[in-house]
Amino acid sequence: MSGVSATARIRAEPDGRGRTVLRELAGDGPLALRRSRHPDDDGAAHVVLVGAMAAPLGGDRLRIDVHVAPGARLLVTSAAATVSLPGRQPAPAHYELHLTVGAAAELHWRPEPVIAAAGSDLRLWTRLHLAPTAHVLLREEQILGRHAEPPGRLASRLTVRQNARLVLDQSTDIGTGAPPGWDGPAVLAGHLALGQLLTTRPCAPDATSRTAAFPVGDGLTLLTALAPDGRALRAALDGWGSLSPAGVRPPSPADRPARAALPAPPGRAAGP
């Protein structure tokens, strides 16, 4: 038997009075969406992804389309981690995110981690299209296995286009059943948590043996971190100060040209 096919849609637009409204908020099948109050910014919209049933299971085809219209500001979080589970048939699950951010718009995409449970096989593909002046903060955390279980397989690809130009297209394929060497000294070296943060915020953290920042495209920074578990991974990603309590702020034209002149982000772990 084949799995579930579902496509959820979110469309955020400015209301012309400095606030963002959700013109479309359409959940589908296991992808339930809830409108929420933004924790810090009254003018921005906040959507919470809520798992309405166990998903993704092997064979499922899930997709979320997010469109942030020019000038709108949207925060997307999730109520819980996404646990990838095996299906009845040994088929991979596919989960696609299509995220489009317009001019002077801002998207903060920071769901809880994806956890590859034993026996699962998930292919995740995030496609991000950014207008030249779009702001973004995208966090992706992958955890191999729930507590003390052998990990499932998790293939994840991140494709980023800025104004149609391809600036980042990279993937990983890790966990049980992934190509040889995935847990070896070139790829994960035994780490069970892998995370990335892509942001237009100015930040230039020092590289460590488990974390590094890469300038990508025009004004984007990709932060990559490896950690022994999800908690340490979150600490490593938040430690860059990129997830300060300010959350989604109104984009300011001063942000990007002034990149080099802005003070360095704090080197401590962020927190309220």
Partner: peptide
């Protein structure tokens, strides 16, 4: 071109930056 493999190795990327320094 979009169907060409995109696989990378996180530790190779991360370690290359500190090695260069």
């Amino acid at each position: 071109v979009d169907l060409l493999p995109t696989l990378g190795a996180p530790l190779l990327d991360v370690a290359a930056e500190s090695h260069a320094a």
